[in-house]
C-alpha cells in the first residue's frame, strides 16, 4: 500500500500535538497538587535524599573531571595567543552558566529520572497505584507532587556543589599542571564571576529538575504491559528528559543573555 507523504506527516503532527497536550495536562495537574493540602512532607524529604544526597558521588565525579579537562583544553587554545590569564575566568563562567546545570541535569536524568519511571511503572503494573486510590490517597499528591517538589528544590543545590567541585578541578590542574600562581588563579576566578552567571545556572537547574521529575513520573505513571512496558517507560523518561533539558537550556540562555 502506498501511503502519501502528507498522510504520514499529518499523522505525526497529530500524534505530536496529542502527546504535547497530554504532557501539559499532566504537568498542570501535578503542579496544582504540589500546592494543595495534604502535603506529604515525609515523602518530599525522602525524595530529596534520593535525588540530592545519593546523586552526590556521580555529580561530584562528573564535576571534578569536567573542571580539570576544561582548564587543560582552554590552556591548549589560549596559550597560542598568550591569553593564559583568561583560563580561570573561562573555567568558572563555563561551569556556572552551562556545564554545571546541563551536565548535572543529564547525569541526574539518567540516575533519578530512570529510577522514578521504573518505580512508578512497577507500581502501575502491579496495581499499587490503583490500591492508593482505593485507600483514599490521591496518587498525584502522594507519588508525583513530592518528586516534583523535591527535584525542583534539590537540583539547584546539586548544581552549586557541581560548580564548587568543578572550579576546584580547574584550580588543581591550573596550579599543579599548568604552573599558575595560586593567588592569581583564585583572584581571576572570583573577580570575573558575576552574580548572573551563578544565578542563571541555578534557575536552569530548577527547571531541569522539574523536567526530569515530570518525565520520570509521566512515563512511569502511564506505563503498561509488564516488565517490557516498564523498560520502555524508563528509556523514554531518560531520553525525553535529556532532550528537553538541552532544548530548555538554549531557551533559558536566550532569555538571560540575548541582547
Amino acid at each position: 500500500m502506498n501511503i502519501p507523504l502528507v498522510t504520514v506527516l499529518g499523522r505525526m503532527t497529530i500524534a505530536f500535538l496529542g502527546l504535547t497536550g497530554a504532557v501539559t495536562t499532566f504537568a498542570t495537574r501535578s503542579l496544582l497538587h504540589c500546592f494543595e493540602p495534604p502535603i506529604y512532607r515525609r515523602q518530599i524529604g525522602r525524595q530529596m535524599l534520593e535525588i540530592g544526597y545519593y546523586s552526590l558521588p556521580v555529580v561530584g565525579l562528573t564535576a571534578i573531571f569536567t573542571g580539570m579537562v576544561l582548564a587543560l583544553q582552554s590552556y591548549v587554545g589560549f596559550s597560542r595567543f598568550s591569553a593564559e590569564s583568561a583560563i580561570p575566568n573561562v573555567v568558572v563562567v563555563s561551569l556556572t552558566r552551562e556545564l554545571g546545570p546541563v551536565l548535572a541535569g543529564l547525569m541526574v536524568a539518567g540516575r533519578v529520572g530512570a529510577a522514578m519511571a521504573a518505580e512508578l511503572g512497577t507500581m502501575r503494573v502491579t496495581e499499587q497505584i490503583d490500591a492508593l486510590t482505593t485507600l483514599s490517597t490521591e496518587p498525584f499528591k502522594y507519588l508525583i507532587a513530592p518528586r516534583i517538589v523535591a527535584a525542583i528544590v534539590t537540583m539547584p543545590m546539586l548544581v552549586l556543589v557541581f560548580d564548587a567541585i568543578g572550579i576546584l578541578g580547574g584550580y588543581l590542574v591550573g596550579i599543579y599542571k599548568l604552573d599558575f600562581n595560586e593567588q592569581s588563579y583564585l583572584r581571576n576566578t572570583i573577580d570575573f564571576l558575576e552574580f548572573m552567571d551563578v544565578f542563571s545556572g541555578l534557575v536552569k537547574a530548577a527547571v531541569f529538575g522539574f523536567l526530569i521529575a515530570l518525565m520520570g513520573c509521566y512515563h512511569g505513571y502511564h506505563s503498561r504491559g509488564g516488565a517490557q512496558g516498564v523498560g520502555t517507560a524508563t528509556t523514554n523518561a531518560v531520553v525525553s528528559a535529556s532532550i528537553l533539558i538541552l532544548t530548555a537550556n538554549y531557551l533559558i540562555t536566550e532569555l538571560f543573555f540575548a541582547r
Partner: peptide, 30 residues
C-alpha cells in the same frame, strides 16, 4: 471511596513500606 475496601489480585502491597505500615496506610494517610 471511604466506604470501599479492595483486595487486589496480586496483593498490590506497597513494597517500599513494612507490612504493618501497609495495613495502617489507610488509617494514617486518609
Amino acid at each position: 471511596m471511604r466506604k470501599f475496601g479492595m483486595l487486589f489480585q496480586g496483593g498490590a502491597l506497597f513494597d517500599s513500606l513494612r507490612v504493618w505500615e501497609n495495613v495502617a496506610f489507610g488509617p494514617i494517610q486518609s
